[in-house]
Every structure is written in C-alpha cells, then in structure tokens.
Design a protein around this nucleic acid. Structure first.
Length: 494
RNA sequence: GCCGUUGUAGCUCAGUUGGUUAGAGCGCCGGAUUGUGGAUCCGGAGGUCCCUGGUUCGAGCCCAGGCAACGGUACCA
C-alpha cells in the first residue's frame, strides 16, 4: 500500500492552521460588528437542494462529490455555502427574524480539475442577508467586504471591490436582440466572454463575442456569433469603468437603452454608488465596474467582487495577478425555489484559502509567534523518575508554559536533537546526579544555537555546555520563565 | 475535454552513440563522543529507472500503447 494524497487536496501544516484560525477570527469580528449572527450547516445536503443545476443523472459526480444513501436518495458534499444556507432559511423561515443576517465558514468541495491555487476542498467564509429587496443591503455587503480586506491586513489601494448589476448585462443583451429563452445559450457565451476581459483583453473578448478565439495553447473557443455592432455595444458597456461614476453610469445607460430591465439595473447601481459615496467608500475602495460577471446562473441583481491589486509574487517569485479573493451578489431566486413566495437575498463569499495564499505571498501572514513546548528530557525510565518528570511538566503547564515530557524511546542525544528540530526554546535535564542533589539543568536552546556558530570543535562545544544553567529543582518554573522572557524580549528587539 | 512538458533513491537531479555491479548533492540512520543540539570526519541504509508490450546479443536510453504528475486552455451550478 502506497501512502498518497489524492490530487487537489492538501495536508495542512501547523503554521497554516494557526494562520487561518487567526484570519478567520479577524473576518468574524467584522461580520459580528455589522450585526451578523453565526450559523452552521452540514457538509452534506440532498443533491437536489444544492442548486437547480442537478448533476447529470448519468454522471452524478460531475462537478460535485455525490453518493447514494441507503434509501437511494442522492447526497452531495456542498460546493458552496450559499445553497445550504438557502435550504436552512427556507426550512426555518417562520422562526427566523427577517431580514435574517447570518455568517458561516467551512469547507466546500468541487470535483473538478485542480490547478495552481485551486483545490478540490477549500474554505469559504460567507455572510448573507435574506429577506430584503433593497439595494441598501447590497451596498452594505460591498462595504463590509472592503472592511474585511483591511481587517486581514490588505492595505487600502491594494484591493478594490468592484460592483456591477446582472440586470445591466441582461439589459444590454436584450437591447441587442438576445432576449428570450431561445437565446439562453448565446447569452451564457456572451457572459463568459465578458468574464474573461481581464484575462484576454478587449480584443480577446471581441473574438469570443464573434466567431471565436484560438489561444496560445492551441485550444479554440467557439464564440457567441455576434455581429460587429452587437459586439461593439457589449464592449461599450464593459469599457465604461467607474473612476468617474457619473460618466460610467451615462455610458451604461447608453448601452442598455431600450431595455427597461437594463435601465432598472443602472438605476440600482446609481443608488449603490450614492450610498457608497455617502459612507465615504468611494475613495477607490468600491468601484462600479460593468465587466464584473461573477458566476453565471443564480445572481439576479447587483454582483460584487473583491480583487487584489497588489503585485504578488508566487512561490517561485514571479509576479502574478492574483485576481478575485471573494465575491457575491443578489440571488432572489435561491430561497424562493423552496417556497411559493419570493424571498430576496444577497450575500458574499470569501475564498479563505485563496486569501490566505495571497497574504502569505504578500508576506503579511504572522505565523511565527507560537512558542514550541519546553521539553523535559527523560534520563531514567523507572516509575519514580518518570513521576518526577511528569510533575515538572505539570508545574510548567500550571504556570501557562507549553511543556511536554519526552515520550519516545531514544537516548539523551536524540532527545536533544528532537527538541532542536521542533524548535523548542528550552530543554530540562535531570539525570541521577542532579536528582540526588535536588537540581535540574536548564538549557536555552535558542541561545545555544547562536553560540554554536562560534564554536567549531565538538569537544570544546560539549565541554562548554553553552547556555545552560543548573538550579534547584524548586526553581524550575521561575528559571524557565526567566529564559522564555529573555527570548521574548530578544525577539521583540529584532 | 483539448494542447504541451515531465516521469531515475525520501527530496533535487546527472546518466555519453544502446554495453557489464545505475550515480551525485541534500536529507535520514549510526559511529568518532556510555550524559549534551550545531560544525567536522568516517560508515550505513535506501531503487519495480512510471507500467505493459515491441526492436535488439543487450534497453534507464530506441519504438508503440497506457498511466500519473505538472503547466496552459475549456468547463466551474
């Protein structure tokens, strides 16, 4: 049997786990501050509850991990947090206060081909407001997202929350004659093309809107088959980006002219823009940007996306465009499909794993403040001695110091090596000699490592017993504390 | 799905026109040092050369098919 990790999954390191915990804690503080309540749903739901796009009956695992229960009903691992949230709200609708404002974090799963920075299991952190149709809720989402970015340490100017409205896109499509059910497929193709604006540029999008595009890898993507005038109108819309809000809105009005739905969308964006400006978030934190598409299906109104602008080196040191670390929008149909009545809702999702990677590559992740445990070496293995070592770690723990008794089978040398490798700050040694005198030897491993750089002869190194003191056993805790404090002061001074 | 690159020790990789016991560095284990981390020196363990078939007296190397990983692209509710 070969031990192997399934592709698209990762084993998480202690540093990673601690860093994510901290980051999630900062995000939670923002959500709580805005008045959202914690909630949690299971990782598994009935497949049909996860979305209107059910897995193909013949291929139930396409895109989502699915399996059949005893009663042959299909179950799936959730692929986002929104669908389970919608199920929960619909099921408990009468009991919940409306608007219902909740947040949740957890693992989601996608059965897709993994890529760099894309995994088959990853963590999201969502906030949602259910039961309010007004765009004030959408404006709040965008602003909260900006606050989250800054709370996790991304400087103002290094990110932007881009806001669009699905109604505007729909309006343009309607205006160029792509309305109606017959054109659903082509509309989708157009949206996909627009979504690739930042990747392939305006000319690439034009190709995708027209006949199609051949990319560098030799793969041909079939286009939407629009004529030049139609493509122009779509491109007009996507190029009216909002540094100048009034100008952008005017350009958008031109692009959607003739579509009531489109004009409604522009008006909503104007309202959001006004609210954002009134709250002071129009200083570059939040921008109206008609090229944001955000997913393809369930959004019905405003959509928003958090994008990192900072130049971020990847693991190989290459500068990469990191792009989106989160997004969301209004999904007025998601809850209502479980109920007979319309239930408006809006929310957003943060890609925790992606955001973590970005912070790590930006060097903004504090990971090193966890002190490894003090190790009490085991010199004698008779029950009485073991009890004595056990009391030492117990005393240290009572003083709030991480400590462990060495539990392996190795000799002293290997025990010190173990402590060294784990990065332990201090080792405590008590053999027969010390025990008779009621003493312990305490070794400062950090200082010792530093001194070792100046000694090249092993005999001298060992005789010197660098950074080591002998104290009465009763002073153990006080002495260890002293060394740890000195190390802490040293770290702070650097 | 499509295109491309790569599969040799735990890791990173050499390996000549096809030639006998497949190597290096790092790491790991042990010793020098019965009770002191690091450095140094010495020693040791560790291999289905991705798999299957073919060509050949002979294949890590050549050929065909497969598998896997990586990268790009498409899809991503």
């Amino acid at each position: 049997m070969k031990a192997r990790l399934p592709r698209g999954f990762v084993d998480r390191s202690p540093d990673d786990i601690r860093a994510v915990d901290r980051m999630v804690g900062k995000i939670r503080e923002v959500y709580e501050l805005y008045g959202f309540e914690p909630a949690d749903q299971p990782l598994i739901e009935y497949t049909d509850a996860l979305g209107k796009f059910l897995p193909d009956q013949d291929r139930p695992n396409e895109g989502v991990f699915s399996f059949q229960d005893d009663d042959e009903q299909w179950l799936s691992l959730r692929y986002d947090l929104t669908a389970p949230m919608a199920r929960f709200v619909a099921e408990n609708f009468e009991k919940l206060p409306k608007p219902f404002r909740s947040y949740r974090s957890g693992w989601v799963f996608r059965n897709e081909k993994p890529g760099p920075g894309r995994f088959r299991q990853f963590m999201q952190f969502d906030a949602d407001t259910v039961g309010t149709p007004g765009v004030a809720a959408d404006a709040e989402m965008a602003m909260m997202m900006a606050d989250v970015m800054e709370a996790v340490g991304i400087a103002r100017g290094d990110y932007v929350i881009r806001v669009n409205n699905r109604k505007v896109l729909d309006g343009v499509l309607e205006a160029i004659g792509l309305g109606g059910d017959d054109n659903a497929g082509r509309r989708l193709t157009v949206l996909r093309a627009v979504d690739k604006l930042d990747k392939v540029g305006p000319e690439g999008v034009r190709d995708l809107l027209g006949k199609g595009r051949l990319d560098e890898s030799g793969d041909f993507t079939k286009g939407a088959g629009l004529d030049a005038a139609q493509a122009d109108r779509v491109l007009l819309l996507t190029s009216s980006t909002g540094d100048d809000l009034a100008g952008a809105l005017a350009a958008m009005r031109g692009a959607v002219a003739g579509s009531a739905r489109g004009e409604e969308g522009v008006q909503e964006l104007a309202d959001i823009g006004a609210m954002v400006a009134a709250a002071g978030y129009d200083d570059g934190r939040i921008k109206i940007d008609p090229s944001v598409v955000r997913g393809l299906e369930y959004y019905t109104g405003p959509v928003y996306e958090a994008e990192l602008l900072a130049e971020i080196p990847n693991d190989e040191g290459k500068i990469v465009r990191f792009g989106s670390v989160g997004g969301g929008g209004r999904y007025d149909g998601l809850v209502s499909r479980f109920r007979g009545e319309p239930v408006p809702a809006t929310g957003f999702s943060i890609g925790v794993s992606r955001l973590m990677t970005a912070l790590k590559n930006l060097g903004k992740l504090d990971t090193s403040d966890v002190i490894q445990p003090v190790v009490v070496l085991v010199m004698d293995k008779d029950t009485e001695s073991l009890g004595r070592y056990q009391k030492m770690v117990s005393d240290l723990r009572r003083a709030g110091i991480r400590a462990e008794m060495y539990l392996g089978g190795a000799g002293m040398k290997a025990q010190l090596k173990y402590a060294d490798r784990r990065g332990c700050p201090v080792a405590v040694i008590q053999g027969g000699d010390e025990r008779e005198k009621g003493e312990v030897q305490i070794k400062d491993l950090i200082e010792g490592a530093r001194m070792s750089a100046e000694i090249s002869d092993n005999a001298e190194w060992r005789a010197a017993r660098p950074a080591q003191v002998t104290v009465p056993e009763t002073d153990l805790v006080a002495e260890v504390k002293k060394i740890l404090d000195a190390q802490a002061a040293d770290r702070a001074g650097q």
